[in-house]
Nucleic acid binder design. Sequence first.
DNA 1: CTGGGTGCAAAGTATTTGCATGAAC
DNA 2: GTTCATGCAAATACTTTGCACCCAG
Lengths: 133, 133
Amino acid sequence: MNYVTLLKTKNLKATPQRLTIVEELYTHGHLNIDQLYSALVEKFPSISLATIYKNINAMSDIFFISEVKIPHKKSVYELTKESHAHLVCSECSSVEDIILHSSHLLEEIEKSSSFKVITQNILLEGVCKECQT
Amino acid sequence: MNYVTLLKTKNLKATPQRLTIVEELYTHGHLNIDQLYSALVEKFPSISLATIYKNINAMSDIFFISEVKIPHKKSVYELTKESHAHLVCSECSSVEDIILHSSHLLEEIEKSSSFKVITQNILLEGVCKECQT
DNA sequence: CTGGGTGCAAAGTATTTGCATGAAC
DNA sequence: GTTCATGCAAATACTTTGCACCCAG
């Protein structure tokens, strides 16, 4: 898949700044605003936080980027991908993706309530492999 | 259970403002900062947002209140209770609690990763009963 | 009485907006 | 050439802090 083309189909220009945000997220998976800014300022010394925000918002609007809200922490951003859950380490703050087969869960909800689920947002806090000394 | 006593055991004074926040959350389940402020200002016309924030923070520190972060929306607060999931309606923004038996989910995670889960944070977005015209 | 709480104002942090210039197409 | 993006500064929104006064215990 070609990010440049994908952006253009949504009428967003493929600027170097924008592409670098995408690359950073592709490479590192999950980054918060400050981490994105630190990464981008290396390459574009005069970039402003406003540009980061504008781009995050623009690409979120087209569902190309998603915000992950984390309890007691700053939000991180990721490239939108197949529905998945997040494992957040309380020690090192790492965020890991995991694909769940949560059909049981959805069945359970439909049985016990009349709520029609559209999007799942599952986040597990705990200790990652590396931090389990 | 007696909220007054509970607060005191944590060295928090049972002020009218504080108790009203608790009552509001008890009655309405989930409220954001603005809703809390609107409710409290009825009873205490000179209350300030700072007081709301300070109390929310103080009672969060003792795990008496929990913040629920919701995608694309403002956080809401609830009284801490038994572990449960949230159903958030995209139409009317209502938040409903549901107790899940998510053992399958936890087993699955432990099988496919070495992550040790401590806290679950499950939120489902969709359409509530009332909004399913 | 004593210590913590309240409410005000101010400070701090986070995010958005307006606009002139510049780059993508 | 036209449109949209960038980057600066300013504005707005959100949250915390300091302090004098007040109330719960």
